[in-house]
Amino acid sequence: MIQSGIGSRVLALALVAPAVAVFGAFFLLPLARLFVVGLSGPEGWRTYAAVLVEPRYLESLVSTMLLAAAVTAVTLAIAGTSGLFLARNRFPGRALLVALLTFPLVFPGVVIGFMVIMLAGRQGLIGTLSEQVAGQRIVFAYSMAGLFLGYVYFSIPRVLLTVMAAAEKLDPQQAEAARALGARPWQVLVHVVLPALKPALLSAGAICFATAMGAFGTAFTLATRIDVLPMVIYTEFTLQANIAMAAALSFVLGIVTWLALSLARSLAGTSVAAAA
């Protein structure tokens, strides 16, 4: 059907029309409204400026970005190591290990928060163990550290799967060629394998960053006192009823996460093209 000519174009339009209508009415239009409402407060456009000027919001924005960056770096290191290992080796029990490692993929933020409480909360595993070993109960679930643990917990499966999929697609002959030329295992890793995985690492890292920026459920479960941006937005909206500020902050948050993803995609895209 869809080769060329008027008929096929009409058909293509007819096929996408329902999705376009739903998407336009319930996403694009509301997003535009969000932007306008952000302008409609008593401060006008200065509501947006406040995000960058008022210390409370700026601090929250910066600390959220730092948290997201730290989560991304740590997750890439952990899941990159394990993902590469699992992709390159076959051993009994491997399939089970992969299945276990990917469970948290579909847990909502609230459940992740609860997992953090189970690990580092007042009745948590870490607390119990540390009390037995050092005589002191270590509890950090209800702080930035707990949130960090939760986001790493949540992000490991996705990065792991991305790295594994990319590593399995690598041409094994490239690593063999490097070895034939005298490269040691670490040189093969640094010169050949990691550059080939760069697109996958970039895109996995960007998703990781964006999720950590915008996630709400985990912070909500752990405490209302952690001043990450989504919590600030929620507070502005429900407690302060400052809808304009909440809208402006949401819009800025959306822009930051969307930019992170687009940037990574275009970076990964060019290096993918170079590898083709």
Partner: peptide, 24 residues
């Protein structure tokens, strides 16, 4: 269109929800 369609993954759910509430 493909790019736009993936935006709801990139944009935090909180923001999308707020936008929906403001509009509808």
């Amino acid at each position: 269109f493909e790019e736009l369609l993936t935006m709801p993954i990139a944009v935090p759910g909180l923001a999308t929800a707020l936008a929906l509430i403001i509009t509808y």
